[in-house]
Amino acid sequence: MSEILNTAIIQPDLKWEDSDANRDLLGKEINKLSDEVDLIILPEMFTTGFSMNAKILAEQTEGDTLNWMREKADLKNAAVTGSVIIGEDDNYYNRLYFVYPDGSYKLYDKRHTFTLAKEDQTYTAGKKRLIVEFKGWKIMPLVCYDLRFPVWARNTDDYDLLIYVANWPRKRVDAWDALLKARAIENMSYCIGVNRTGEDGDGYVYNGHSAVYDCLGKPLTELNREEEFVKEVSLEKDSLHETRKKLKFLQDRDKFSLEL
């Protein structure tokens, strides 16, 4: 168990539908990280960009990218997370992997597929939330469009950290900024959002704004950065729990159940 969780967020300019190039690009950045890092966070569809070309790009459940994540987790003795296009049982998934240092993993299939881009016509939506236990921390990882749906993220499990990996375009980045902060505040949780930069093959432009917020919505990173960057940020569990104990906001939350 660790009271400090050292995270690393990587905001890249992804190469369109080029898995080898993206793994090479991200691998070089991971190799530079300090030995203190516990958790490395990559964007949504970090090997391809936000592509609907799943029939050609999809990997098997335990394919090249998962093996690459395992190699990097072993190399840095850290967990690695991000989402990848996966084909399984005649379906395609926007699948987030949370890979532990020992090579074991948990997975989460994006629940809210982005209908505006017709993601729902290509990818099968997930049906289960995921709470990861790692170094004494409870972590809930989600994917991009999930950010717009607060009920799915509601902190009914007393998790400590909420993560969103994304390909969130510049034209709607104000919503990204506002909702990341809101999710931190309403859930009394650290909240990390990791986005990409650059332009994809469909002409959409991304301007990053990856960020880390504490449970009161205070930013722990420089906000609104649009260029490629890597940032290591330490999270403190004692501070989180002391704030929760003092303010007691989560004790007043509404009870509800989800219908899927």
Rank of each mutant, 00 (worst) to 15 (best):
Y145V: 03
Y92H: 12
L235C: 14
N77E: 07
W16A: 06
T61M: 15
K218H: 04
L147C: 03
V205E: 14
V212D: 12
A79D: 05
L247V: 07
S83K: 08
C144Y: 07
E226N: 14
A153E: 14
D160V: 08
P219M: 05
D18Q: 10
N22A: 08
W16K: 01
L14C: 03
D35L: 04
G63S: 00
E199N: 10
R70V: 07
Q251A: 07
E62V: 09
G193N: 10
S83M: 04
D120P: 07
G201A: 01
L14E: 01
Y190Q: 07
A78F: 05
S189W: 04
T221L: 14
T7N: 14
F249D: 02
W16R: 03
K231M: 04
G87I: 04
R196G: 00
E259K: 13
S189I: 03
C191Y: 00
D20A: 15
N224G: 14
G103V: 00
T122N: 10
G203F: 03
A153G: 10
K15I: 11
M1G: 09
M69W: 02
D160F: 05
E3L: 01
K135C: 02
N67S: 13
S257F: 08
N187Y: 04
P141V: 03
Y190C: 01
W152P: 11
T81H: 09
N6Q: 12
R154Q: 06
L66C: 01
L107V: 12
Q251H: 02
